[in-house]
C-alpha cells in the first residue's frame, strides 16, 4: 500500500489524514491501472462504462453486507468464519418458506404464498441465533473466536445440507424475489452500511466496540459489560450474514446448500483491505466500503482484461496477504514509537 511520503517530523505531529484517504488512493491507483491497461489492450475505457460499474457494485454488495458485520467483529478483536455457512442455512430456510403455491413439490405444501415478511423474519432468525451462539461461546466459555466460528461454519453448512437432504429449493413468490431484483441488493447494502456507520461513530454501541477491541481488560474495569457486548456484536454479524443470504437466494430464485461458500473469507478480505486491523480496535465502515470497491474493481478489472479466472483467485490471495502485511507493518511502527 502507498504510505504518505511526507518528511518525518520530529516536532509537533502534523494533522494526520484519516486512514481512509490512503485506502482511497489505493482504489484510485488500481482503477487507473486498469483504465490504462484497458486502453492499451482492449482499446476501450474501463471506468467510462456505467453498466460495468453497476454490475461490479452489485457483485460485491451481497458480500459487502456480510463485511459490515465482519468489520465490527474484527474491530472487537475477533473473527467470524461462519458467515458463509449462515448464508447457506438462511437461504434454505427462507426460500422454503417463500415458495409459490403453484409449484407442486413445495417443501411445506401447506405453507406456500406466505407474505414476504415470514421468510424474511425466519431467515434473519437463523442468522441471529447462529451469531448469538457464536457470541455466547466466545464471551462465556472463552474459547478463541476462530474455533467457535469454525465450529459454527461446519455445523451451519451441515444444517443447510440436511434441511432438504441436499436438494435445491426454488420458485419463490414475486415479493420475495423482489428482495434481490435489480439494484435492490445495493440499496440494502447502503442502508446497512449507513446504519452501522452511524452506530459505530455516534453511539455507545460503537464506543464499546472500539474500547473492547483496544483493551478488553480496561473496558471491563471502566464498567463496560464486555461479555454482553461481545454477544451483541456476533449476533449482529450473524444477522447481517443472514440478510446477505436472503438477498442472494432471492436474486438467484433458488436456494442451494452450497451457497455462500468462501463468502466469509471475501468479507474478511474486504475489511482488511479497508484498513480494519486484525489486532482489534481500529477500522471503520467507510474503510470497509472502500475495501469492498477495491475488491470489486480488481475482479471486474480482470474480467475486463479477459484474464483467466484462475489468475483472479491467485491474485486475490496475494492482495489479501499484502493488506495484512500492511496492517502488521503499521502495528510494528506503532510499537517502536511507544
Amino acid at each position: 500500500m502507498t504510505t504518505a511520503t511526507t518528511q518525518p517530523t520530529t516536532e509537533r505531529p502534523q494533522r494526520r489524514l484519516p486512514q481512509e484517504v490512503n485506502i482511497l488512493m489505493v482504489l484510485v491507483g488500481i482503477s487507473l491501472v486498469f483504465e490504462i491497461l484497458g486502453w492499451i489492450t482492449q482499446g476501450q475505457s474501463f471506468l467510462g462504462n456505467p453498466q460495468r460499474l453497476s454490475i461490479m457494485i452489485l457483485q460485491v454488495s451481497v458480500i459487502g453486507i456480510i463485511a459490515i458485520g465482519v468489520t465490527q467483529v474484527i474491530i472487537l478483536g475477533g473473527i467470524d468464519l461462519s458467515s458463509g455457512s449462515i448464508v447457506g442455512a438462511t437461504a434454505m430456510i427462507s426460500m422454503s418458506l417463500a415458495q409459490v403455491g403453484t409449484f407442486d413439490r413445495a417443501i411445506y405444501p401447506g405453507l406456500t404464498d406466505l407474505p414476504v415478511i415470514v421468510p424474511l423474519i425466519a431467515g434473519l432468525m437463523v442468522g441471529l441465533i447462529a451469531g448469538t451462539v457464536n457470541g455466547v461461546l466466545i464471551a462465556y466459555t472463552k474459547i478463541p473466536p476462530f474455533i467457535a466460528t469454525l465450529g459454527m461454519m461446519v455445523a451451519a453448512r451441515g444444517f443447510a445440507k440436511w434441511y432438504t437432504k441436499g436438494q435445491p429449493v426454488s420458485f419463490p413468490t414475486d415479493s420475495f424475489a423482489a428482495l434481490g431484483k435489480g439494484m435492490t441488493p445495493v440499496f440494502i447494502f447502503l442502508l446497512v452500511a449507513a446504519i452501522f456507520h452511524v452506530a459505530l461513530k455516534y453511539t455507545r454501541y460503537g464506543k464499546y466496540t472500539y474500547a473492547i477491541g483496544a483493551n478488553p481488560q480496561a473496558a471491563r474495569v471502566s464498567g463496560i459489560n464486555v461479555e454482553r457486548h461481545i454477544v451483541k456484536i456476533y449476533a449482529v454479524a450473524g444477522l447481517l450474514a443472514a440478510l446477505a443470504g436472503i438477498v442472494v437466494t432471492a436474486r438467484g430464485l433458488t436456494a442451494q446448500a452450497g451457497m455462500g461458500v468462501m463468502y466469509e473469507l471475501d468479507a474478511i478480505a474486504m475489511a482488511v483491505i479497508g484498513g480494519v486491523s486484525l489486532a482489534g480496535g481500529r477500522g471503520t465502515i467507510l474503510g470497509t466500503m472502500i475495501g469492498m470497491v477495491i475488491f470489486g474493481v480488481i475482479i471486474s478489472g480482470f474480467t475486463f482484461l479477459r484474464l483467466d479466472a484462475y489468475y483472479q483467485e491467485m491474485i486475490k490471495g496475494v492482495i489479501i496477504v499484502a493488506a495484512v502485511v500492511a496492517d502488521v507493518h503499521r502495528q510494528k511502527k506503532r510499537v517502536k514509537k511507544s
Binding site: 452506530a199 455507545r204 474500547a211 483493551n215 480496561a218 471502566s222 463496560i224 511507544s338
Partner: peptide, 28 residues
C-alpha cells in the same frame, strides 16, 4: 488494564462516563 493505547484521549476519558450518563437511546 487502564489505557486504550490506540484510541485517542477523548475516547479514553469518556469511557467510564458514557456507561452511565449523557446517552439517550444509545446516542452519545
Amino acid at each position: 488494564t487502564g489505557c486504550f493505547l490506540i484510541l485517542d484521549c477523548l475516547e479514553n476519558i469518556q469511557t467510564a462516563l458514557i456507561t452511565r450518563d449523557h446517552v439517550r437511546f444509545g446516542f452519545i
